[in-house]
Design a protein around this nucleic acid. Structure first.
Lengths: 173, 173
DNA sequence: CTGAACTTTCAAAACTTTTTGAAAGTTTAG
DNA sequence: CTAAACTTTCAAAAAGTTTTGAAAGTTCAG
């Protein structure tokens, strides 16, 4: 296999992989493209390589910058904007964890906390007692688990690579 | 807030939450509905509570059973099938991790391994040397990270609740 | 067997998300 | 300032996903 073919395959796979994780396919493909490029690329370069429209390229590159995965590079004597991807896999993972916690875990925790409060309020009718109790236990269990998972991810996100690898060794014992 | 309203809200939130994680909204809502039901429900019950069609209810209940999150219950003297959800949050988490590893992480790892092999093949032309080297390093880094993350998840999936909580304490030190 | 009770399937419709591309906006060289 | 070079926006179109519901399939009591 040619290296060009291999990179192509990498870009396609990264796109599909991203899609299952709730990330727009083009966004993931752009990320992959920038990861395998030896030079920063312009919007035009990306449009041509991925066969996508200007609007699509522009929007998704912005999104990648919002996530912190891609940064703008300027070349002297050139008005075009060029982009390059963060290549440190460890750093990439932390940025992704940060975004996903923000978007997915924290809103869910907020809802659970809210509903827990409701469940604690007085029981009005006798027959509700047991139902309410069961619901409360469920919410409490989910809350406990999610809070713990969230705090691990928080720790991960703030830690350095060594912490991760040291932790791994501990856990695998 | 009424308990009925609270459960309603739980079902809606679980649905939206699931959606961002690449799980069909109805599937997540059905799961939530069964989680908060004190009795097993029939397909008809689910159709009525969630206002969905028979086909939709049927397909997504099947999917939940494939994931192992829901099981069939039969009542004597009744030909209908009833369904109930696994309520142990820990167990639920393990089942979800198992499915997602299978569907998302493992296929990605397979692609990376395949591309790594390609990258190791002889360099044909002089100018390709550096490009190939850079690509190889990237693939190697991703592979290392993903393999480690996958093995933590594998361990998690096979472990019991106590392992998880003990590990947490260790990690948070 | 037969037919009622139930479950499954799947093509078409509804809905959601993504993409396009042209127009508007911004920046800068001259 | 002006106009060329570039970036951003967003309504409409395309693509993708989910849902519907009716027909086909299955099971089982009588």
């Amino acid at each position: 296999m040619e290296i060009k073919t291999a990179k192509e395959k990498f870009i396609q796979s990264w796109g599909n992989f991203g899609k299952t994780w709730g990330i727009n396919k083009t966004m993931a493909q752009l990320h992959a493209l920038l990861l395998v490029s030896d030079e920063p690329l312009s919007t035009e370069d990306a449009m041509e390589r991925l066969q996508i429209s200007r609007g699509n390229a522009n929007m998704n590159i912005r999104a990648l910058m919002d996530w912190g995965l891609v940064s703008k590079v300027t070349k002297m004597g050139d008005r075009k904007e060029y982009f390059e991807a963060e290549r440190d896999v460890w750093h990439i993972a932390r940025l992704i964890v940060r975004e996903r916690r923000k978007r997915e875990i924290e809103p869910m925790l907020a809802v659970i906390e809210e509903l827990k409060e409701v469940s604690l309020s007085e029981v009005n009718r006798e027959e509700e007692q047991e139902e309410k109790e069961r619901f409360s236990v469920l919410l409490e269990d989910i809350d406990q688990f999610a809070t713990k998972a969230d705090s691990i991810l928080d720790k991960f996100q703030r830690s350095d690579e060594n912490w991760f690898y040291r932790s791994l060794v501990k856990l695998m014992k």
